[in-house]
Design a protein around this nucleic acid. Sequence first.
DNA 1: AACGATTAAATCGTATACGATTAATTATCG
DNA 2: CGATAATTAATCGTATACGATTTAATCGTT
Lengths: 152, 152
Amino acid sequence: MSGSRHDTPALTARLDDFLCFSIYAAEHAFSRAYKPLLAEIGLTYPQYLVMTVLWEEDDQSVGQLGTKLSLESSTLTPLLKRLEAEGLLTRHRDKQDERVVRVKLTQPGDKLRNRAAKIPACILSASGMSLDELGKLRDQITQLTKRLEEAV
Amino acid sequence: MSGSRHDTPALTARLDDFLCFSIYAAEHAFSRAYKPLLAEIGLTYPQYLVMTVLWEEDDQSVGQLGTKLSLESSTLTPLLKRLEAEGLLTRHRDKQDERVVRVKLTQPGDKLRNRAAKIPACILSASGMSLDELGKLRDQITQLTKRLEEAV
DNA sequence: AACGATTAAATCGTATACGATTAATTATCG
DNA sequence: CGATAATTAATCGTATACGATTTAATCGTT
């Protein structure tokens, strides 16, 4: 057996040991869990996140959305154009500062909130966890994210 | 105030309340934390995950890799072709079953493991958590993923 | 052996996602 | 006031990622 490349397993952690991979897998799982629910209202998962930010606070700039979602304009611009083409929002240059593009919900975009309202409960139920457990887990992950961002 | 669209905030959970968003953000943070480290060895984050699976066990089919990473062949095939073009692995049809493509590390691909070996420790340090905390968090997330997958 | 069902990858179209660059506008400082 | 710096989106090139379809090979049943 000596000399085989499998003599030194300690060099490579097993994928299942990686916290980053558990997050990667969970992200996939969430995306898949949301997909059928979002398909009913014609949104993708990232589009749903953008709409959620706008339902929370309307009339935000591309930059504000990017900060909240950790996304670049190179990602947001095409995504927002698709939502605009769907008639869910408008994009207009800010009169005071023409560099800024302000994103506003249309009436259909605002109305969609009602149809999306039941989705979080579906996911909660699918997760099989209590609101309390979920909140604790969320806070731990958020703190981890904060530390990773500080370290970079 | 009555009649404003902001009368019913309960309809829309705040984005920060979403566990799914904390995972989404953590996935981004991990990806960004890994990026400079992986750039040194010329890998992207998904490519690193594939290589990790192969370092763990060489000579796997595209399907096996897909199962372990929750990825479709439509994602893996182009990714594997890039790694093949880099000379890190080979792709060959299985002699016993020509439907199957077996992926094997080349010597450079195997050697890369040594250069990648220090990366997990860097991330661990950046996360600012103990191995024990990390393990507990990982197990909770893995369980959550399992439940979400079962519910779909 | 034969033929329909199943399986494994690959392909295609669409949608993120990011870094680097560009374009347009605004701020700043001499 | 005017040149330069800084800011904001948009654009471009590359790399995931998935669903649906296609292709090729194998399996199952008769």
